[in-house]
Amino acid sequence: MHDRVVQLAGSFVTTDRTVEQEFEARLAESSTLAFRVAYSVLRHRQDAEDVAQEAFVKAYRCFSQLRNRERFRAWLVRMTWRLALDRRRGDRRREARDSESAIARDARAAGSLTEDLVERERAAHLWTAIDALPEKLRVAIVLASIEGHDVSEVARLLALPEGTVKSRLFVARQRLKEHLQWMRTAETK
C-alpha cells in the first residue's frame, strides 16, 4: 500500500515536472510573438510586456488544455490580442500620448528605425494606416508580418480557413497601400 502511494505521488511529481518543462519550452519560443502582438496594438513597450506577461500567466493556469504547440500559440495570440485591446480601450489618454512620443522612443531603442526624421514619419503613417483597418484585417496583416508567418500559419493561429486569410491579407494590403499613397501624396502637395 505504502509503495503504491509513493508511486502515485511520484507520478504526480513527474507530471508536474513535465508540465513545467513543456511550458518553459512554449514560453521560450512564443515570448516574442506575444510581445509583438501586444505591441502592435499598444505601441508601448512596457505596456506590451505587461500584457504579454498577463497572457502567459493565464496560459499557464489552463496549460493542461493547451499542451499542443499549435493550440497554445493560437490561444496565446488571441488572448494577447484581446488583453491588449482591453488595455488600450481602458487607457485612451495614454494611447494619444504614445502615438507620437513612444513610437519615436521605441524606434530609437530598438534601432530598427534610423534617426532619420523621414523614416519616423513613414512609420507613423504606417501605424495610422494599420489603425484605420478593421480589426479582422488588422490582426491578419499583423500576424503575417510578425516572424514571417505565411498564410497557412496565420490561418492556424486565427483558426480560419486559408482562403479567408488570403483574401483578408489581400484586402488589407490594398487598403494599406492606398492609405499610405494618399498620405504621401498629401504630404508632397
Binding site: 515570448s31 516574442t32 510581445f35 506577461q53 521605441d106 530598427s112 501605424w127 508580418s145
Partner: peptide, 17 residues
C-alpha cells in the same frame, strides 16, 4: 511592416514572466 513590428522585448521580459 516587418521592420515596424520587428521590435524585440527587453532581455528581462522572459525572466519577469
Amino acid at each position: 511592416l516587418q521592420t515596424l513590428l520587428g521590435v524585440e522585448p527587453s532581455p528581462e521580459f522572459v525572466a519577469r514572466v
